[in-house]
Structures are given as structure tokens and as C-alpha cells.
Design a binder for these strands. Structure first.
Length: 352
DNA sequence: AATGCGGGGCG
DNA sequence: CGCCCAGCATT
């Protein structure tokens, strides 16, 4: 925690949020009472799910399974049937398992403390905090994506929300603005403001009850927050090449301008079916290599004549190059490696 | 620390 | 149409 924030009083922000919530809360079915069962179901439904999408499912689910006892008695298939279309189906399976826990481990009574609620299957820190604060007045901030966004903007704080330390960091920040009283209203105020006003894109700052406390808004830097490093997406890639040659000459073609290795040269990526017969009589050397997250298979085919090579090249618009000339072309790294050490490999059959 | 789960929303 | 999405369990 930054020391310059420790001594200042930010509790007035939380108090404003609570006051705003008491007259501006969205009217939602699970807010008609504070039964922990209903709040719990609603929080699970709303994980990674918009209210607009989850509302109908929530109503049908509660109608079919009005209490933990009913949910406990149901079959897993029945529970899944009522989850159909919502996605993340392990949520439904865990809901069902948690109903068993409530009946068997908690004697049919929904647990009343954060630490016990957390023991339920499918309930993590966010959901446990939401239920504990809304239903049992425990002062625990319900830290989710909304909270990261709202807090980072209020404090114009560029702490990376992708960091593994972000949860603790934003918990500390939340406690700076969280009053002792009405923790449930406080958390729900953040939920409503996060989804309706302090939206990721095009936030409606003019309607925000704490816009004069929001440093990002006051300094016109809303779009800078929250700070988030996007991790490079890792995808496995499997490639197959044919190193088709006659003596010291072989075939290459320049890649297009899309995907990877733009404009670099590579070996043929396929062998047309009409060449199959000719190639069946050739010696095939199979070579596999890995590079980063790629696996590349290269089949070396020694043709019987220069004429065959030329025919193949003109049929498929390949370039015939000399081994020395090839050095002047730009190859992707794994192909260049192969090109320089291509005497490695095993004799095999062509894998058509 | 990274990955899988699933739909809808968004540019 | 591809990309994105902090909640939770699992690895």
C-alpha cells in the first residue's frame, strides 16, 4: 500500500456510495429479501454473466429449487437442465454439491460466516464476501473485476490488475473507502456502479455519485484505468513441410503477408495427389523438430531427375534454388536450422 | 503461475 | 467475425 494513502480519510467515498445505493439500487429479484440461499444462487449465476442474461435463468432456477433442501434432493441432470444455455456448467455441478454440503455438513442451515461460506464448492473469495456482507453484515469487500476498475479509477492507480498481487492490493485499497456499517450495500453499490456507470468502455461519469472524488475523472484520464498487461496468447502450432530436392537443388516459395513469417521463404507445404506415384518410389527422410510452441515435421524427398524437379516446380509455382543461393533468402528460424543440418533424420514412408 | 470452462458483447 | 472477459477449480 502506498504510504501517501494511509493517513488520508477516504471513508466519505464509501458513505456516498451507500447513500447512493439506498435510492438508486437496481430492483432485482434476489434483492427482495436477504436469504443467503437466494443471494448465493444469484452470485453464482452472475459470475462471468450479465444480469440481462442471467435474470431469466435465476428466476427459473429458484422456482424449481426454492431452497437448499430442494436442490439437495434433485438429480445432477435436473440441475444441469436448469443451467442449460448459461455456460460454465461446472457452476451448476458445484451448486449441487454445495447443497449437499449445506444439508450434511452444516445441518441444513446456510453457513453464516465468510470462512464457512468459502468452504462451499464453487464459492471463492468474491462470492463468499458478497454473501457474507449482504446477508450477515460482515465487513469484507467483494473484490471482482468491477471493483478493480472502480478503485483504479477513483485513485488513478495503475497497479497491474493482471498481477498475482492485485487481489491483496485492491483489497487494501477497498478497505480504505469501506465504512464499518452497511457492508452489503457498499459492495452492491460497487456492483451496480461497475456494471451500469463505471463501465469498461464509455463510462457514464456524469451520473457517478463519486465523480468528484475520482482522480481519473477529475484529471481526464479515465481511459488509462484499469491498467492491465495482456499476456501473449500461446497456441500450439503444428506444421508439415516437404523438402523436395534433386542433388543440390530444392524448392521454396515465398510466404504471403498474413499469419506468421510474413514474406519469408519456406519449403512446399503439401504434395498434390498426382505426384503421389512418383514420390512413392523416392527415398523419404522424416525429420521432426520443435521450436517454441511449434512442432514441425519435414519430409525430405529425393527425386529421380532434374526434370522431375522442374516439372514439380512449374506445376506448383515453386522456385528452384541452389543450396548456396538459398543462403541468400530469409527463412524462418526453424527452417533455417533444418536447412543447415538436414542430414538428421530417419528413413520412413510418406505420410499422405 | 497457467489453464479450462462458455456464452454474449464489442470493435 | 475474431477477440475479449478476475471467478473458480485444477494442475
Amino acid at each position: 500500500m502506498k504510504t501517501n494513502k494511509q493517513n488520508a480519510d477516504f471513508l466519505h467515498i464509501g458513505k456516498k456510495l451507500i447513500k447512493w445505493y439506498q435510492t438508486n439500487a437496481r430492483q432485482l429479484p434476489w434483492r427482495e429479501n436477504q436469504h443467503p440461499y437466494n443471494i448465493w444462487i444469484s452470485e453464482i449465476v452472475l459470475q462471468q454473466t450479465q444480469v440481462k442474461q442471467g435474470l431469466g435463468h435465476y428466476l427459473r432456477f429458484i422456482e424449481r429449487f426454492p431452497t437448499a433442501k430442494e436442490l439437495h434432493k434433485a438429480s445432477e441432470d435436473d440441475v444441469l437442465l436448469y443451467w442449460k444455455g448459461l455456460g460454465y456448467y461446472s457452476r451448476a455441478i458445484n451448486l449441487h454439491k454445495a447443497a449437499h454440503q449445506i444439508i450434511e455438513e452444516f445441518d441444513g442451515k446456510f453457513p453464516t460466516h465468510y470462512q464457512d461460506i468459502l468452504k462451499l464448492k464453487g464459492v471463492g473469495k468474491y462470492t463468499a464476501a458478497a454473501v457474507a456482507s449482504i446477508c450477515f453484515d460482515e465487513k469484507i469487500p467483494a473484490i471482482d473485476g468491477n471493483f478493480y476498475r472502480v478503485l483504479s479509477r477513483i485513485f488513478a492507480d495503475d497497479f497491474d490488475m493482471s498481477s498475482s498481487k492485485a487481489f491483496q492490493y485492491f483489497t487494501d485499497l477497498a478497505l480504505l473507502i469501506m465504512p464499518e456499517d452497511k457492508p452489503g450495500d457498499f459492495n452492491q453499490a460497487i456492483m451496480d456502479i461497475g456494471s451500469e456507470i463505471c463501465k469498461p468502455k464509455n463510462p457514464l461519469c456524469g451520473e457517478c455519485p463519486v465523480n468528484d472524488d475520482c482522480i481519473a475523472y477529475q484529471t481526464g484520464r479515465i481511459s488509462e484505468f484499469p491498467m492491465k498487461t495482456k499476456k501473449a496468447k500461446v497456441t500450439d502450432l503444428s506444421l508439415k513441410y516437404y523438402f523436395i530436392k534433386f542433388q543440390n537443388q530444392f524448392l521454396i516459395k515465398q510466404r504471403g503477408n498474413d499469419f506468421i513469417w510474413k514474406k519469408l521463404y519456406e519449403f512446399p507445404t503439401s504434395v498434390p495427389a498426382e505426384w503421389e506415384e512418383l514420390i512413392m518410389n523416392s527415398k523419404i527422410i522424416n525429420h521432426k523438430l520443435t521450436h517454441k510452441n511449434m512442432t514441425i515435421e519435414i519430409n525430405t524427398i529425393e527425386l529421380e531427375s532434374k526434370k522431375a524437379l522442374e516439372k514439380f516446380a512449374s506445376d506448383n509455382e515453386y522456385l528452384i534454388v541452389d543450396e548456396k543461393l538459398a543462403d541468400e533468402k530469409s527463412f524462418p528460424k526453424p527452417l533455417e536450422t533444418f536447412y543447415k543440418k538436414r542430414n538428421v533424420g530417419e528413413i520412413g514412408r510418406l505420410p499422405f
